[in-house]
Design a binder for these strands. Sequence first.
DNA 1: CTGAAAGCGCTTACAG
DNA 2: CTGAAAGCGCTTACAG
Lengths: 341, 341
Amino acid sequence: MSTSPRKSRSSGRVTLDDVALSAGVSRITASRALRGERSVGADLVTRVTLAANALGYVPDPAARALASARSHTVVVLVPLLSNNLFVDLLEAVHRVLHPLGYQILIGVTHYQPHEEEELLASYLAHRPAGLLVTGFDRTPRCQALIVQSGVPCVHLMETSRDPSVHCVGFSQADAGRAMTQHLLGTGRRRIAFAAAQLDPRVMQRLEGYRRSLKESGCHDAALEWLSPEPSSMALGAQLLESGMAAHPDVDAIFFCNDDLAQGGLLAALRLGIQVPQRLAIAGFNDLAGSDQMWPPLTTVRTPRVEIGESAAAMLLQLMRGESVEPSSVDVGWQLVLRQST
Amino acid sequence: MSTSPRKSRSSGRVTLDDVALSAGVSRITASRALRGERSVGADLVTRVTLAANALGYVPDPAARALASARSHTVVVLVPLLSNNLFVDLLEAVHRVLHPLGYQILIGVTHYQPHEEEELLASYLAHRPAGLLVTGFDRTPRCQALIVQSGVPCVHLMETSRDPSVHCVGFSQADAGRAMTQHLLGTGRRRIAFAAAQLDPRVMQRLEGYRRSLKESGCHDAALEWLSPEPSSMALGAQLLESGMAAHPDVDAIFFCNDDLAQGGLLAALRLGIQVPQRLAIAGFNDLAGSDQMWPPLTTVRTPRVEIGESAAAMLLQLMRGESVEPSSVDVGWQLVLRQST
DNA sequence: CTGAAAGCGCTTACAG
DNA sequence: CTGAAAGCGCTTACAG
């Protein structure tokens, strides 16, 4: 049982031929044994596996992808890495898919449709086994790329009634509405909505806020404080400061994301504005640190771990060619009432 | 000039042959033209480029990697994505490498040596063009994998005097020492060091802290509050609370990371401990929000954007086969004195 | 259950 | 400056 390569290769790489030779089988049998195809004798499987381990064989993903026209890569497209929300999502996806031999290829779109297009085009060239993308808002060309590729795709963070798309998320609008109702329920009437980035999901939360306030006759467009800039604690502070200066009668601010809300909370502290007595402050997402604020921040807990896990599981089914029912999964959300409201 | 494929392929994919046929050149010439090899006539280059664009040709990375025995992938190994430090690093690396046609493959090690080993083994199979790893602390097997692979590698975050390794970073110990000196300089004598995770770089900061306090005769091992748990605001609060309960005379806490320090700051607020009058609080890294704290947090600004950019630039040279001088780049750090000390 | 042939889509020498 | 041949390391039908 020689362990020397059949013929000297330029690269020192251990190939399938080396394993096959060492195990005394053909290359194809070695390939099948290693991939766990059932049509191989049990004794051969162990012999091949042993040989592969002894030689330190690692299959070449490029060769594999080229020959089989598919890879074990799952592409995940998220807007940002600087929002922990998406990091949690990625970790959850990784936790499900990695043990099954999938590699996660992370693409960051920065909320830029053209960046998403470019990433998608270049990643699709890798023949990914599956695709996970954030939300539904993308260019027609992006949409077309996904559909034409034929790569199974699950959409994250939102839900849909279109049975032809697969998604795991929750109703951003409902959550936005519920938080506003909560503020109304505690007697607030001058409720501002302070938002940054203004991505589709933020706008859906705004929609929920609007609906709620219009229903109760409290809506005032002047209290929608919208900034297209990236979300940050500093921006939250700024929005609170300028907003309160222009509208001193505001008695609650619903920030579209916790980092804004945390910044707002600290700005209130700095400015000597009593929270929640004088001003209620609410956030969204229940990010790290929101429970550590003083006062602790009321917010909406969004189940991104569950989204990541469910989406990965759904993608797994699709990649196996199974049909998935239902195609849209709503994992819900949860009001977390702390002391800032 | 027909645009139909030379022969029907099972995959609908547009291949180099299609482009070559459409441009009326051989496949090799098309390949060379597209890759910008200079040995191709200018007119042919434009003809090929036009044909490629018209057909929507995207090179197959798998075929490319297999044929050339190398890819345009750069693997970056970071401990965590939940620390913004590493996100900043990744963004900077991406900003330099992406425009040059490199894909960034992110690996998250969770500070686990065996996870790093596994990631490295599987990523190395992709024949990456380059490797970026965090720090120097890894298993011998990991080390060996890197060296044997022959893939150019740059180490992030730390510096080294070993001329055979390439790295971009700064002296964590010096920075730790400088912050401690600052605290001593403002009259503090009972200075605690509160740390989490206890990764190599945290321990280097601790070392700097120790050196400084020993020199001034103020060192007290009981004031080293070390927790192996992951860093978080909640843990920072906990460390402050338990530490101050056990050692009420402590007049300064140097947290090894800003999230801990932010948590500590908020805990002090909650407990009614005056900062900085009664207790000085310092952090490390100058993470998002530290300038928004109340009082704003004194910390050490670590130039991760510069580290990412310089490391990417250095890796680029190595990937081109150029030698790099010096092999260790110290980008320094900066004391940021705010109102918490 | 096992194997010989062909091919995935490129690029690397080697010629001219 | 351009091209025909060979091959990268696998897997997919197709046979037996």
